[in-house]
């Protein structure tokens, strides 16, 4: 198939709309999706990420996900689905895992499994590589690993969210990068009651059966109070309906455990603070 100037301009426009002119001007690369060498780059990526286990099957033979072999594809649509996923289904978006070149190579590989007929968009495409995320210092990297360490049942991320990851039981920490000093963060971690972020003061609910539950209030209305019960980690979100509640009071003590100063060594604390301050 001859690649016409019309399609070329359409594709470049589509590309610029998709990825933003800034990125594409920063780095551009010409990729021919019909190039077997380029498609072969997609084969191992497909095997590791798409064929896996119960998903699309080896060489797209079908699985929990649909069969990909023997089908007719529009390469732009295919690329977008791989990149963004399909909402409310088990098809995830891969933009956070694979770079654009990787996704294009999988696109080329899948087209190669198809019927052999090509949509116009399956010709040459210009693409820009994603600008790499800011590289973290080794300290901040260690801090990030500690913050999200799944083998630690008291890790920070059980309660705190930072840059779109972690739970929202405690204060979100992304904005803390600019507003808090290293010393203030150190104090927040080792002496949580020294200052308590607004909206995260401890609430105590006295329940009709005599139980007293303290934690962080998530929400309340005429019908009920929702409270993260911080007596346990991970903290359950408990709902108390008005007819169960005998009383509600506040406290100046933080719901955050006081043990983090002992749990982490000084250098580990410094690493975690470096990560919070890194602005990744």
């Amino acid at each position: 198939m001859k690649f016409s100037g019309y399609y070329w301009s359409v594709l470049v426009s589509v590309f610029l709309a998709l990825f933003g002119a800034k990125d594409s001007l920063a780095q551009t690369k010409i990729i021919d999706l019909r190039d077997p060498a380029f498609a072969s780059l997609g084969a191992p990526l497909f095997a590791k990420n798409c064929a896996v286990g119960y998903c699309h099957g080896s060489e797209g033979a079908a699985g929990q996900g649909p069969r990909l072999r023997g089908r007719h594809w529009n390469s732009t649509t295919l690329f977008e689905v791989i990149r963004d996923g399909i909402p409310n289904t088990t098809m995830p978006g891969w933009s956070g895992v694979l770079n654009q070149e990787g996704i294009w190579s999988i696109t080329a590989y899948i087209i190669g499994l198809g019927t052999g007929t090509f949509e116009p968009a399956s010709g040459k495409l210009e693409m820009g590589e994603r600008i790499a995320a800011k590289e973290l210092s080794s300290k901040a990297k260690r801090g990030r690993a500690l913050f999200f360490d799944l083998t630690n049942e008291k890790r920070c991320a059980l309660c705190h969210r930072i840059r779109s990851r972690g739970s929202t039981i405690g204060p979100e920490l992304t904005s803390t990068t600019s507003t808090k000093s290293v010393d203030e963060l150190h104090r927040d971690i080792t002496d949580p009651s020294a200052t308590i972020a607004r909206g995260f003061e401890q609430t105590i609910v006295l329940v009709a059966d005599g139980e007293q539950v303290s934690g962080i209030k998530k929400d309340s209305n005429e019908e009920r109070i929702q409270l993260y019960d911080t007596a346990a980690l991970p903290s359950p979100l408990r709902t108390f309906y008005r007819n169960q509640i005998r009383g509600v009071s506040g406290s100046s003590v933080s719901s955050m455990p006081t043990s983090y100063g002992e749990m982490y060594s000084p250098s580990e604390l410094a690493d975690i603070i470096a990560f919070i301050k890194s602005g990744e």
Partner: peptide, 15 residues
């Protein structure tokens, strides 16, 4: 059928 409690055991996206 009202919710009484729920707990996130580990973040599904991370784990």
């Amino acid at each position: 059928g009202r919710e009484v409690w729920k707990v996130e055991i580990e973040n599904g996206g991370q784990c």
